[in-house]
């Protein structure tokens, strides 16, 4: 095997899949051939991509975070209830949302790292509880709109931007979020140690790594990413009670498609980003083709299995 081929193998295959999907989307619809069209695709994909990155921290350290979807719902409900449509309260609501997120992350982390409850069960518990809290707080139907300046992040599009024409605010949020998370994962000791912790927590602990604290932090990061995604989603589409439903599985799917290995020790932010983009591009393409909606779920299932099978096959080569 030549060296060129070998280096080609190292490229995350998700990127290739994404490029193919994107090409198909552009071919299907003239809208997406413009920079503005592509940016609007990014705007809509932003929540899933951010979630997938946040989820990847937990996955790489060996856990799962099933509570992220519920947390999105709680954030949207909280923003609606705190602001009650009043723009003056937006900053309070944003601060409160991140505070709630951090608290949920810490609770998850403590249950897993201190209580030794397997994270799939622990976060299943918090999924139920967080959703329940959101419903209790709102009485089942949140009163109040999200004020325009809160929806700004998810919905607003700058017009008449040079070169690209229209530029969604959400894309800026997306880029900043990815930058922070990529730096955490790849540019710090923290990120490098997470991989070791995910691979062998006992070895990491005996090498002096703060295993519990870092594991806990992964849940906090995932929760903060969920809050960001929640603010974007609420901004994009407004208040509803089931806004976050199902996002936890989408986030895990995206990460797996991006080559993050369940039970830890392997994965990258690049993969997580392209996993999220691929998943969203796939939905968009199926939408454009006019594929019957229920079957899209089935296609997602097949893609998911194929991605995991592929990475299992690559993994065995080591």
């Amino acid at each position: 095997m030549t060296r060129g081929l070998a280096s080609l193998r190292r490229i995350n295959p998700t990127i290739l899949v994404f490029v193919v999907l994107l090409a198909a989307i552009c071919w299907m619809s003239p809208l997406y051939r413009t920079p503005a069209g592509l940016l609007s695709l990014l705007q809509r994909a932003a929540p899933v991509v951010i979630l997938s990155c946040g989820q990847s921290f937990v996955l790489i350290a060996g856990g799962f975070d099933l509570a992220s979807g519920s947390l999105i719902t709680l954030v949207v409900v909280a923003c609606a209830l705190i602001t009650g449509g009043d723009a003056g309260w937006t900053w309070v609501a944003l601060l409160a949302s991140y505070g709630i997120g951090a608290a949920v992350g810490v609770v998850n982390g403590v249950i897993v790292a201190r209580g030794k409850v397997p994270s799939i069960i622990a976060t299943l518990g918090t999924l139920l509880s967080v959703k329940g809290i959101a419903m209790m707080w709102s009485g089942g139907a949140p009163g109040g709109y999200l004020p325009a300046n809160l929806r700004f992040f998810g919905r607003y599009v700058w017009r008449h931007v040079p070169l690209v024409g229209r530029f969604p605010v959400a894309v800026v949020v997306l880029i900043i979020s990815i930058a922070i998370m990529a730096w955490l994962m790849h540019g710090t000791n923290f990120g490098r140690l997470l991989l070791m912790i995910g691979d062998n927590p006992r070895a990491a602990e005996l090498a002096g790594a703060p295993v519990r604290r870092f594991r806990m932090l992964t849940f906090v990061i995932s929760a903060l990413a969920s809050v960001t995604a929640g603010i974007l989603l609420g901004g994009f589409s407004g208040v509803s009670v089931d806004v976050g439903t199902g996002y936890e599985l989408q986030a895990i799917s995206a990460a797996v498609i991006g080559g993050v290995v369940l039970l830890g020790g392997q994965g990258s932010m690049l993969g997580a980003v392209f996993g999220g983009l691929t998943l969203y591009a796939l939905f968009t393409l199926l939408n454009l083709v006019g594929f019957p909606e229920p079957m899209r779920v089935a296609v997602q299932g097949i893609i998911l299995i194929a991605a995991a099978a592929l990475s299992a096959r690559r993994g065995r080569r080591i």
């Binding site: 710090t188 490098r192 002096g208």
Partner: peptide
């Protein structure tokens, strides 16, 4: 590399550049 550096990294600041 990651295995050999794990102690140094554990001792360094978490947010510092990887050892």
């Amino acid at each position: 590399r990651d295995n050999a550096l794990v102690v140094r990294r554990s001792l360094s600041r978490a947010l510092a550049l990887p050892s």
